[in-house]
Protein backbone atom coordinates (compact mmCIF):
# COMPACT_ATOMS: atom_id res chain seq x y z
CA UNK A 1 0.00 0.00 0.00
CA UNK A 2 1.48 3.38 -0.96
CA UNK A 3 1.62 6.12 1.64
CA UNK A 4 -1.77 7.32 2.80
CA UNK A 5 -3.06 10.58 1.37
CA UNK A 6 -3.20 13.70 3.47
CA UNK A 7 -6.45 15.10 2.17
CA UNK A 8 -9.29 12.66 2.18
CA UNK A 9 -11.93 15.37 2.43
CA UNK A 10 -12.75 15.34 -1.26
CA UNK A 11 -14.09 11.81 -0.82
CA UNK A 12 -16.41 12.80 1.97
CA UNK A 13 -19.81 14.46 1.87
CA UNK A 14 -19.05 17.40 4.07
CA UNK A 15 -22.65 18.47 4.66
CA UNK A 16 -23.35 15.13 6.39
CA UNK A 17 -20.61 15.61 8.98
CA UNK A 18 -20.30 14.95 11.84
CA UNK A 19 -21.15 11.28 11.62
CA UNK A 20 -23.67 9.59 13.91
CA UNK A 21 -20.94 7.39 15.33
CA UNK A 22 -20.00 7.52 19.00
CA UNK A 23 -16.55 8.83 19.92
CA UNK A 24 -14.09 5.98 19.71
CA UNK A 25 -16.32 3.80 17.54
CA UNK A 26 -14.43 1.59 15.11
CA UNK A 27 -16.83 2.39 12.28
CA UNK A 28 -15.08 5.75 11.88
CA UNK A 29 -11.73 3.98 11.45
CA UNK A 30 -13.27 1.84 8.73
CA UNK A 31 -14.75 4.87 6.96
CA UNK A 32 -11.31 6.44 6.90
CA UNK A 33 -9.91 3.25 5.40
CA UNK A 34 -12.59 3.33 2.70
CA UNK A 35 -11.65 6.92 1.84
CA UNK A 36 -8.01 5.91 1.64
CA UNK A 37 -8.87 2.99 -0.61
CA UNK A 38 -10.91 5.29 -2.87
CA UNK A 39 -7.96 7.64 -3.11
CA UNK A 40 -5.71 4.82 -4.27
CA UNK A 41 -8.37 3.46 -6.58
CA UNK A 42 -8.40 6.80 -8.39
CA UNK A 43 -11.74 6.13 -10.06
CA UNK A 44 -13.95 9.16 -10.65
CA UNK A 45 -16.45 9.26 -7.79
CA UNK A 46 -19.31 9.48 -10.28
CA UNK A 47 -18.46 5.89 -11.20
CA UNK A 48 -18.73 4.65 -7.63
CA UNK A 49 -21.84 3.86 -5.61
CA UNK A 50 -21.77 3.08 -1.90
CA UNK A 51 -24.73 1.24 -0.42
CA UNK A 52 -25.44 0.46 3.19
CA UNK A 53 -27.89 -1.58 5.19
CA UNK A 54 -29.48 -0.47 8.45
CA UNK A 55 -27.37 -0.14 11.56
CA UNK A 56 -24.56 2.15 12.68
CA UNK A 57 -22.45 0.62 9.90
CA UNK A 58 -25.27 1.13 7.40
CA UNK A 59 -24.85 4.90 7.74
CA UNK A 60 -21.56 4.74 5.83
CA UNK A 61 -23.02 5.76 2.42
CA UNK A 62 -24.12 9.12 3.84
CA UNK A 63 -20.54 10.18 4.39
CA UNK A 64 -19.09 9.65 0.93
CA UNK A 65 -19.27 11.96 -2.01
CA UNK A 66 -20.62 9.28 -4.35
CA UNK A 67 -24.06 8.16 -5.40
CA UNK A 68 -25.35 6.34 -2.39
CA UNK A 69 -28.17 4.23 -1.03
CA UNK A 70 -29.10 3.60 2.55
CA UNK A 71 -31.35 0.58 2.05
CA UNK A 72 -33.19 -1.78 4.42
CA UNK A 73 -31.93 -3.95 7.26
CA UNK A 74 -30.07 -6.96 5.87
CA UNK A 75 -30.96 -6.54 2.25
CA UNK A 76 -28.41 -4.16 0.83
CA UNK A 77 -26.97 -6.88 -1.41
CA UNK A 78 -30.30 -7.27 -3.18
CA UNK A 79 -30.32 -3.56 -4.05
CA UNK A 80 -26.65 -3.70 -4.98
CA UNK A 81 -27.26 -6.68 -7.27
CA UNK A 82 -29.98 -4.78 -9.15
CA UNK A 83 -27.87 -1.64 -9.41
CA UNK A 84 -24.79 -3.51 -10.59
CA UNK A 85 -26.75 -5.42 -13.23
CA UNK A 86 -28.37 -2.20 -14.42
CA UNK A 87 -25.00 -0.48 -14.72
CA UNK A 88 -22.19 -3.06 -14.72
CA UNK A 89 -19.49 -0.41 -15.16
CA UNK A 90 -20.31 1.09 -11.78
CA UNK A 91 -18.05 0.23 -8.84
CA UNK A 92 -20.50 -0.91 -6.18
CA UNK A 93 -19.40 -1.05 -2.55
CA UNK A 94 -21.65 -2.18 0.28
CA UNK A 95 -21.32 -1.55 4.01
CA UNK A 96 -23.02 -3.93 6.41
CA UNK A 97 -23.14 -4.72 10.07
CA UNK A 98 -22.72 -8.24 11.38
CA UNK A 99 -26.42 -8.39 12.24
CA UNK A 100 -27.24 -6.92 8.87
CA UNK A 101 -25.14 -9.38 6.88
CA UNK A 102 -25.26 -12.54 8.97
CA UNK A 103 -28.67 -12.53 10.68
CA UNK A 104 -31.49 -10.86 8.76
CA UNK A 105 -29.42 -10.65 5.57
CA UNK A 106 -27.67 -14.03 5.68
CA UNK A 107 -29.75 -15.36 2.80
CA UNK A 108 -28.81 -12.48 0.54
CA UNK A 109 -25.16 -12.69 1.61
CA UNK A 110 -24.67 -16.32 0.63
CA UNK A 111 -26.58 -15.99 -2.63
CA UNK A 112 -24.67 -12.91 -3.76
CA UNK A 113 -21.48 -14.82 -2.95
CA UNK A 114 -22.69 -17.86 -4.86
CA UNK A 115 -23.35 -15.76 -7.97
CA UNK A 116 -19.90 -14.20 -7.70
CA UNK A 117 -21.30 -10.86 -8.77
CA UNK A 118 -18.73 -8.07 -8.78
CA UNK A 119 -19.65 -6.33 -5.53
CA UNK A 120 -17.56 -5.40 -2.53
CA UNK A 121 -18.81 -6.15 0.96
CA UNK A 122 -17.27 -4.38 3.89
CA UNK A 123 -18.61 -6.18 6.90
CA UNK A 124 -18.29 -4.14 10.10
CA UNK A 125 -18.21 -6.78 12.79
CA UNK A 126 -18.56 -5.30 16.26
CA UNK A 127 -19.96 -8.53 17.76
CA UNK A 128 -23.21 -6.81 18.69
CA UNK A 129 -26.18 -4.78 17.43
CA UNK A 130 -25.00 -1.21 17.85
CA UNK A 131 -27.82 0.87 16.46
CA UNK A 132 -30.57 -0.80 18.48
CA UNK A 133 -28.63 -0.62 21.72
CA UNK A 134 -26.50 -3.70 22.25
CA UNK A 135 -28.48 -6.84 21.50
CA UNK A 136 -26.98 -10.21 20.66
CA UNK A 137 -25.65 -10.75 17.14
CA UNK A 138 -24.78 -14.01 15.36
CA UNK A 139 -21.18 -12.96 16.00
CA UNK A 140 -21.43 -12.37 19.75
CA UNK A 141 -18.82 -14.73 21.18
CA UNK A 142 -19.81 -17.55 23.49
CA UNK A 143 -20.42 -16.37 27.07
CA UNK A 144 -20.23 -12.70 26.12
CA UNK A 145 -22.97 -10.37 27.22
CA UNK A 146 -25.46 -8.28 25.34
CA UNK A 147 -28.77 -6.78 26.43
CA UNK A 148 -30.56 -9.88 25.10
CA UNK A 149 -28.01 -12.31 26.51
CA UNK A 150 -27.65 -10.68 29.94
CA UNK A 151 -26.36 -13.93 31.47
CA UNK A 152 -23.91 -14.68 28.68
CA UNK A 153 -24.46 -15.92 25.13
CA UNK A 154 -25.11 -19.66 24.84
CA UNK A 155 -25.13 -19.77 21.01
CA UNK A 156 -22.23 -20.59 18.72
CA UNK A 157 -21.20 -17.84 16.30
CA UNK A 158 -21.04 -17.54 12.56
CA UNK A 159 -17.57 -17.19 11.13
CA UNK A 160 -17.86 -14.70 8.27
CA UNK A 161 -14.76 -15.99 6.51
CA UNK A 162 -15.86 -19.63 6.61
CA UNK A 163 -19.32 -18.66 5.44
CA UNK A 164 -18.06 -16.47 2.59
CA UNK A 165 -15.58 -19.12 1.44
CA UNK A 166 -18.20 -21.86 1.53
CA UNK A 167 -20.76 -19.74 -0.29
CA UNK A 168 -18.38 -19.00 -3.16
CA UNK A 169 -17.00 -15.51 -2.57
CA UNK A 170 -13.82 -15.14 -4.62
CA UNK A 171 -12.02 -12.54 -2.49
CA UNK A 172 -12.22 -13.11 1.24
CA UNK A 173 -10.25 -11.23 3.86
CA UNK A 174 -10.46 -10.34 7.51
CA UNK A 175 -8.72 -7.67 9.50
CA UNK A 176 -9.35 -5.40 12.46
CA UNK A 177 -9.62 -1.70 13.17
CA UNK A 178 -6.30 -2.09 14.96
CA UNK A 179 -4.66 -2.95 11.63
CA UNK A 180 -4.87 0.53 10.12
CA UNK A 181 -2.54 -0.36 7.24
CA UNK A 182 -4.28 -3.60 6.28
CA UNK A 183 -7.77 -2.13 6.31
CA UNK A 184 -7.40 0.12 3.23
CA UNK A 185 -5.19 -2.46 1.54
CA UNK A 186 -7.78 -5.20 1.80
CA UNK A 187 -10.63 -2.86 0.90
CA UNK A 188 -8.75 -1.75 -2.20
CA UNK A 189 -8.00 -5.38 -3.03
CA UNK A 190 -11.67 -6.19 -2.69
CA UNK A 191 -12.82 -3.29 -4.87
CA UNK A 192 -10.29 -4.15 -7.58
CA UNK A 193 -11.20 -7.82 -7.46
CA UNK A 194 -13.51 -8.72 -10.36
CA UNK A 195 -15.97 -10.82 -8.38
CA UNK A 196 -17.77 -11.02 -5.06
CA UNK A 197 -15.37 -9.72 -2.44
CA UNK A 198 -15.79 -9.75 1.32
CA UNK A 199 -13.65 -7.88 3.82
CA UNK A 200 -14.66 -8.49 7.38
CA UNK A 201 -13.33 -5.90 9.78
CA UNK A 202 -13.51 -6.47 13.51
CA UNK A 203 -14.63 -3.14 14.89
CA UNK A 204 -14.99 -1.82 18.41
CA UNK A 205 -18.34 -0.74 19.83
CA UNK A 206 -17.26 0.83 23.11
CA UNK A 207 -20.76 2.06 23.86
CA UNK A 208 -22.39 -1.37 24.06
CA UNK A 209 -20.10 -4.32 23.46
CA UNK A 210 -17.24 -2.75 25.37
CA UNK A 211 -19.30 -1.54 28.28
CA UNK A 212 -21.45 -4.67 28.66
CA UNK A 213 -18.36 -6.88 28.62
CA UNK A 214 -16.06 -4.61 30.60
CA UNK A 215 -13.49 -4.36 27.83
CA UNK A 216 -12.39 -0.86 28.75
CA UNK A 217 -11.89 2.21 26.60
CA UNK A 218 -11.55 2.17 22.80
CA UNK A 219 -7.71 1.81 22.98
CA UNK A 220 -8.16 -1.20 25.27
CA UNK A 221 -10.60 -2.67 22.79
CA UNK A 222 -8.11 -2.21 19.95
CA UNK A 223 -5.54 -3.93 22.11
CA UNK A 224 -8.03 -6.71 22.68
CA UNK A 225 -8.50 -7.10 18.92
CA UNK A 226 -4.75 -7.33 18.47
CA UNK A 227 -4.37 -9.92 21.19
CA UNK A 228 -7.15 -12.13 19.89
CA UNK A 229 -6.28 -12.30 16.21
CA UNK A 230 -3.48 -14.05 14.40
CA UNK A 231 -2.31 -13.70 10.83
CA UNK A 232 -3.27 -16.97 9.23
CA UNK A 233 -3.81 -16.37 5.53
CA UNK A 234 -3.16 -18.69 2.59
CA UNK A 235 0.61 -18.47 3.02
CA UNK A 236 1.15 -18.66 6.75
CA UNK A 237 1.74 -21.88 8.61
CA UNK A 238 0.16 -21.90 12.03
CA UNK A 239 -0.24 -24.62 14.56
CA UNK A 240 -3.57 -25.56 16.06
CA UNK A 241 -2.39 -24.33 19.43
CA UNK A 242 -1.56 -20.91 18.09
CA UNK A 243 -5.04 -20.66 16.56
CA UNK A 244 -6.81 -21.57 19.77
CA UNK A 245 -8.78 -18.62 21.09
CA UNK A 246 -7.59 -16.44 18.22
CA UNK A 247 -9.41 -15.35 15.12
CA UNK A 248 -7.37 -15.74 11.93
CA UNK A 249 -6.88 -12.55 9.92
CA UNK A 250 -5.43 -12.01 6.46
CA UNK A 251 -6.48 -12.64 2.87
CA UNK A 252 -7.95 -16.12 2.66
CA UNK A 253 -8.92 -16.30 -0.97
CA UNK A 254 -8.20 -14.30 -4.07
CA UNK A 255 -9.27 -16.25 -7.07
CA UNK A 256 -10.66 -15.49 -10.51
CA UNK A 257 -13.86 -17.33 -11.34
CA UNK A 258 -16.60 -16.47 -13.84
CA UNK A 259 -18.28 -13.28 -12.69
CA UNK A 260 -22.06 -12.89 -12.86
CA UNK A 261 -22.49 -9.76 -15.01
CA UNK A 262 -20.01 -11.19 -17.51
CA UNK A 263 -21.82 -14.51 -17.55
CA UNK A 264 -25.03 -12.63 -18.14
CA UNK A 265 -23.46 -10.55 -20.93
CA UNK A 266 -22.35 -13.77 -22.65
CA UNK A 267 -25.86 -15.15 -22.38
CA UNK A 268 -27.30 -12.00 -23.94
CA UNK A 269 -24.75 -12.04 -26.71
CA UNK A 270 -25.65 -15.64 -27.54
CA UNK A 271 -29.27 -14.49 -27.84
CA UNK A 272 -28.34 -11.47 -29.94
CA UNK A 273 -28.92 -8.94 -27.16
CA UNK A 274 -26.75 -5.90 -26.56
CA UNK A 275 -25.93 -6.04 -22.86
CA UNK A 276 -22.40 -5.07 -21.94
CA UNK A 277 -20.71 -5.95 -18.68
Amino acid sequence: MPKMGEDLHQYLRQQMMPTVWCPGCGHGNIARAIATALEHLGTDLGQVAILGGIGCSGRTPFYFNTNAMHTTHGRVLAFATGLKLANPRLTVITAMGDGDALAIGAGHFIHAARRNIDLTVILYNNSIYGMTGGQQAPTTPFNFRSTTSPFGNIEPTFDTVDLALAAGATYVARTTTFDFAEMPEYILGAIRHPGFAVVEILSQCPTYFGRLNKLGDPPDMLEYERNHTIVADEESVISRDELLGNLPVGVFRQEIRPEYTHQYADLCQARGGAYRA
Partner: peptide, 23 residues
Amino acid sequence: GGVFIQMEDELAALGAVIGAAWG
Protein backbone atom coordinates in the same frame (compact mmCIF):
# COMPACT_ATOMS: atom_id res chain seq x y z
CA GLY B 1 -30.26 -6.69 -23.87
CA GLY B 2 -32.45 -6.38 -20.80
CA VAL B 3 -31.74 -7.96 -17.44
CA PHE B 4 -33.44 -10.98 -15.95
CA ILE B 5 -32.47 -12.42 -12.60
CA GLN B 6 -34.04 -14.98 -10.30
CA MET B 7 -33.46 -13.80 -6.75
CA GLU B 8 -33.43 -15.79 -3.51
CA ASP B 9 -36.76 -14.45 -2.23
CA GLU B 10 -39.30 -11.71 -2.86
CA LEU B 11 -37.66 -9.13 -0.62
CA ALA B 12 -34.54 -9.60 -2.70
CA ALA B 13 -36.57 -9.43 -5.92
CA LEU B 14 -38.07 -6.04 -5.08
CA GLY B 15 -34.76 -4.83 -3.63
CA ALA B 16 -33.04 -5.65 -6.92
CA VAL B 17 -35.82 -3.92 -8.84
CA ILE B 18 -35.34 -0.74 -6.79
CA GLY B 19 -31.57 -0.90 -7.22
CA ALA B 20 -32.03 -1.36 -10.97
CA ALA B 21 -34.38 1.62 -11.15
CA TRP B 22 -31.66 3.83 -9.63
CA GLY B 23 -29.33 2.24 -12.17
